[in-house]
Write a protein that binds this DNA or RNA. Structure first.
Lengths: 206, 206, 206, 206
DNA sequence: CATTAAGCGAGACGGTACGTCTAGTCTTATG
DNA sequence: CATAAGACTAGACGTACCGTCTCGCTTAATG
């Protein structure tokens, strides 16, 4: 085996001794970057349905095989792309006050989902997950769980500070805080303003 | 609804006197039904991504042109299919008590989304809406708005009975009640039990 | 079944009730011609190895599927193309005198093989037959047998006129007359002049 | 021969001082043999069209670069392979009598072409020569000319013994003796028996 | 003996073409 | 004139090889 299991790239589902593993250490960083950038650009320009592996390859100046060697599908590429963006932009801030932190985080989440190109990737990936169980599993494993962890930490910080009740059901609380936002973005398509998110926090803390 | 002649079917972009309009009165009811059934069956058997116009036509014993004549895409067919199912199953009951009504409705909504084949259509359509603005618009116009109206009526009934505050922001309330459910179904994929939905109602009314 | 077996196009190897037969009567004559012309042009321009199904399709303004629907491979297309050319150019003339007829035919055969673009197709097909049993069988069934029949008729005419011995082994005679020509064209690549072919006839009749 | 350093291997197009010449003296004999064997085995197992450089490399446990370093193509490898086989098996015997020698040689040639794996290489190479001028030139230079020399010697021996006429056109005679055999093997695919080859000799000497 | 310069196995790379699949349009014959 | 059937152009799919290009690793032959 080359490389420890933990460090394997997204989409590496194969166990050891699988048919044929590409060797991570030989991987071309230049191509990797070109592919991720091309995918991102295309998503913005032509939309999720218009993104094709062929198009990514052409735009990146890369062989299709190189994409298939390291990712399993266009969704896989876009997800990889996205994960780093999300890590940077969706980290809940530590402001000492849970109400400020929540207000801030929800506002930034809305901003990300509705105005940031990377947010478009996220909603596309969630959309794709509705028709593709495999994609859904990878999405949850590689992106969502990390994000949820960051969000749980936020609430736990509030608990440890005594700003939230000790017995709080964290996951339920997240569903009640984030659910209405995702609902408007994904289902009704209504715009979401700060008033709405602030209201969620107020009712949650009240 | 597949639409009266004046309003034209979803996806028909032509103005009046445009290239050529099919005449609704000549339409074959037999083919229409065969197509909708075939689409439904296929969705359950092979999943949204596996459904193709070609597959529907073959299974229904129908020419592809007949599908394209009356619908704009596979999503259009599935949506048509779905709309009637939803009407039957997602009508909020009038039980006299808002708390009972909400508890009942949310439970049935969860049941529909997670266990009913028609619910699979719904989540698929929402998923598709994430990559297809046109689809999204049609989905909201032809399905979602009707459903939202039924849901708003539920809350308004509660207000008129004096069981809910007169100044209630109905749309915000719906987002807070339904959002957490859609969030779990669409985003995290966690199972949703009656405890969860009842809790939403309790906190909402409390 | 559509069409009697004899009239079936080249490459139709399937028995009745095979997976799916295209319907010959719906075939687009325009596309058929465009494909055959494009293939012929390409062969001359880029040589056999450079001809691709993709290239033919592009040049002909045709979908690849249309080529695969009616032919099995590029060799199949080129063969189809060729068969008609050969029919026109390689018919042994009836001149009343076997020596004149043979001299004439061998000269024209050489001319065809070495100077006519269609002759290039022929040698390419024979070449391809060396690595492809399936191709070889089709080539022999669809082209070679017809040509051999025409050549046998030539000799039989000579026999019936009393210009050749009654007990002549026709197939062996053809091998001795044509073999040296094909040998030079296919194996040694030496040029073949009228002196050479006339000599073959002289020795054969002597 | 894979060539002395001065003459360079087949397919080497570089002038002296060109990009970079591999050093023959460093060459791995083990790899060379593994490659030739693998190529031979593959030819028998999957046929000419199925042989690939990649397949040879994998089967031989060798890097592709090693093949490209010393040969120019799969045809090049197979030809190299073949040349030695032919040398052993297709040497005309010196039996003192031209009729016996010819009968013997033609029989062995037929046996080689139709039953020996190396004969399959030969016909494949001739086939390949029909679509590849470069290949054809190399084939003629590296294999055919040597073989033709051996064959011419056979006839010249007959002339010097007085068993063949002094003014015999040797090349024409070879075309008449060998042509019908190659014709049947390459073109018509008919089986060739001893009766046929003996008949050629009889008519040639008669 | 260390150095160094090759050949080597391995395999990732940019490409091209493969043969298949589906989209959405167009054509023909039938009722 | 809608329909079933299905051929059509178009173009993406995922795979197979091409021939080139690093990588570390032997393995000689030289300093």
């Amino acid at each position: 085996m080359q490389g420890d299991t933990a460090a394997n790239g997204p989409g590496s589902v194969h166990g050891p001794g699988s048919v044929r593993e590409p060797r991570e250490d030989r991987r071309s960083e230049k191509s990797r970057r070109a592919i991720l950038h091309a995918a991102d650009d295309l998503l913005v320009e032509v939309g999720y349905a218009g993104v094709t592996v062929e198009g990514i390859a052409a735009r990146a100046g890369v062989g299709k095989q190189t994409i298939y060697r390291w990712w399993g599908s266009k969704a896989d590429v876009l997800m990889d792309n996205y994960t780093s963006d999300a890590k940077e932009q969706l980290v809940p801030a530590d402001l000492g006050q849970i109400d400020l932190e929540l207000r801030d985080y929800l506002r930034r989440l809305v901003e990300f989902l509705t105005a940031d190109p990377a947010g478009m990737v996220l909603t596309s990936l969630i959309g794709q997950s509705q028709h593709d169980k495999h994609m859904a599993a990878i999405f949850r494993r590689d992106h969502l769980s990390a994000q949820l962890d960051r969000e749980r930490d936020l609430l736990r910080r509030g608990i440890s500070r005594g700003q939230l009740p000790a017995g709080l059901d964290v996951d339920r609380a997240l569903a009640e805080l984030l659910g209405p936002i995702y609902y408007r973005v994904l289902v009704t398509g209504e715009p979401v303003d700060a008033d709405f998110t602030d209201g969620l926090v107020t009712r949650f803390l009240g």
